[in-house]
């Protein structure tokens, strides 16, 4: 039996793959969203800044910022889950991704439920891929702030999968 791959090498490969995927999308940086990885599980964080405010009197996060955060989490989560096997088999061509070869899933529809006021502090979100077919996928996202069990927004959407060649 071959020896297991050294942990540092595993982490380096996965973190590099995640960063090249995320860094492809200017809007993710614009919103200030980053992704933390534990194994294959991704958690998105939208760090609070004043430009995310939609109601300055309360104050509260803009519903549009929350919607965008959830949609980003869904698309990256879905893309990550479909690329995972390639990443693990070292088949993901990082250089090609950096040169714009990666085609992300396209949103068909997206429905956001606003459950509580978004507070002026960091928000977190995780996506769950409920169905991932060859052409279509269905993804659910939950977002919270202080308590993991008290979601302030959730969303579900359908996505058109990029067509793979070969």
């Amino acid at each position: 039996m071959s020896r297991p791959e050294p942990v540092t090498q595993v982490k380096r490969r996965r973190d590099l793959a995640l960063s090249v995927i995320v860094n492809q999308v200017p809007y993710i940086e614009f919103l200030g969203v980053r992704f933390d990885r534990h194994g294959d599980e991704l958690t998105a964080t939208m760090g609070f800044h004043e430009d995310l405010i939609g109601n300055p009197i309360l104050p509260a996060l803009h519903g549009g910022a929350t919607a965008a955060f959830l949609e980003i989490t869904a698309i990256i989560g879905l893309s990550w889950s479909t690329l995972w096997n390639d990443i693990e088999a070292e088949r993901l061509d990082v250089e090609a991704v950096q040169n714009g070869a990666l085609v992300l899933p396209k949103t068909i529809d997206f429905t956001v439920d606003y459950l509580r006021t978004g507070l002026p502090r960091d928000a977190y979100a995780r996506a769950r891929v409920n169905r991932s077919g060859r052409r279509y996928a269905s993804v659910h996202v939950g977002a919270w702030q202080d308590n993991r069990d008290r979601l302030f927004a959730q969303a579900s959407g359908h996505f058109l999968m990029p067509q793979r060649h070969g």
Binding site: G54, H62, G63, G64, A68, F69, F110, V112
Partner: peptide, 11 residues
């Protein structure tokens, strides 16, 4: 990004 369009629709 669709998210920016969502923000526009919401506003």
């Amino acid at each position: 990004h669709g998210g920016a369009v969502s923000a526009l629709m919401d506003t």
